[in-house]
């Protein structure tokens, strides 16, 4: 029984690792190490809850844990994010592909949002959740989730104005 549960857990993690890691990376504003810590912490919690959530929606469980932890991360001391007026100097992109450059630009822009705004924006546009679902994941009222998402998008609209051309 436990062996079957462990196999199921390993299979789930192996199959969904890449997608979950990308979600964690977006939630952390592109910080690879923090994203790995966040995902590891969520998967450890999933291991102990696996008998309950294995037959239901384990990915939704991980998403909720990561979303809430990322939104709370502003209170942690090791979170040293500070908003700046100008974008930090990007790495030389001479031999980088356009996709990698675009990803770096996106992650840099996401890093300038507050953790709650970033979590709301990522869950709303990357996970394609409704405002009600975003509110449920973050554990906040719908109006609060909507406010975080709209403010985050407005901020990204300013930052990425030169990357994403507005279409009239």
């Amino acid at each position: 029984m436990e062996k079957t549960g462990a196999d199921g857990f390993d299979g789930f993690v192996t199959a969904r690792w890449s997608a979950l890691f990308h979600l964690a990376r977006l939630l952390c504003g592109g910080d690879r190490h923090r994203a790995e810590d966040l995902l590891q912490e969520a998967l450890v919690k999933l291991w102990f809850a696996w008998p309950k959530v294995a037959d239901e929606a384990p990915e939704a469980y991980v998403r909720k844990i990561m979303g809430r932890a990322a939104a709370r991360s502003a209170r942690r001391r090791w979170w040293g994010e500070r908003p700046v007026d100008r974008l930090p100097e990007l790495a030389q992109t001479g031999d980088m592909s356009a996709a990698v450059a675009e990803r770096s630009r996106l992650e840099t822009a996401l890093a300038q949002l507050t953790p709650r705004q970033r979590a709301a924006v990522v869950l709303r546009y990357y996970q394609d959740l409704s405002e009600k679902q975003v509110a449920a994941v973050l554990g906040v009222p719908v109006g609060t989730a909507r406010s975080h998402a709209s403010r985050g998008v407005a901020r990204l609209r300013q930052i990425l104005a030169d990357v994403i051309d507005p279409v009239g």
């Binding site: 990308h22 924006v121 546009y125």
Partner: peptide, 8 residues
Amino acid sequence: LARMMRDS
């Protein structure tokens, strides 16, 4: 924005 997040 959604496309950039998915394509990245």
